[in-house]
């Protein structure tokens, strides 16, 4: 039965029957469409792995290792260009002055020599 309130022209029964029995594509058509899809399919976009620089960076310990390496490189360059004209630039004068520590004072050395003679 059709609902006459929503089917004034009496067509809904025909429409619902047509929706229930739609023309269906054949398996052969689906196969042809799929063959076309394969033929027209763009080349797959390659999945990009880590680049050469990234892999080298990993070998050197990641960004932390690279940071240390860069600091050491800059320091080396600076030392080379500075030609160590004044080594105090490097040490900041911390080890510039030498202190003499008398581990065996003269008086004790003398006393020791005397003891040996006796």
């Amino acid at each position: 039965m059709t609902d006459r309130k929503h089917d004034d022209d009496g067509l809904e029964g025909f429409f619902s029957a047509a929706r229930a029995y739609p023309p269906e594509p054949s398996e052969a058509l689906l196969a042809r469409v799929l063959a076309d899809a394969e033929a027209a399919r763009p080349a797959p976009v390659p999945v990009r792995g880590p680049g050469l620089l990234s892999r080298i960076g990993d070998l050197l310990g990641g960004w932390q290792g690279l940071g240390g390496l860069a600091t050491a490189t800059v320091a080396g360059l600076w030392i080379g260009y500075a030609e160590l004209a004044d080594p105090d630039q490097l040490t900041g004068g911390l080890v510039g002055a030498s202190d003499v520590v008398d581990l065996l004072p003269q008086a004790e050395l003398f006393a020791l020599a005397m003891e040996m003679e006796e």
């Binding site: 594509p25 058509l29 689906l30 799929l34 899809a37 394969e38 399919r41 763009p42 797959p44 976009v45």
Partner: peptide
Amino acid sequence: YGRGDAGAARVLTLRLT
């Protein structure tokens, strides 16, 4: 499919044909 996925082509074929 536009990026080369063959599986997407199969689903679209059955859904849209």
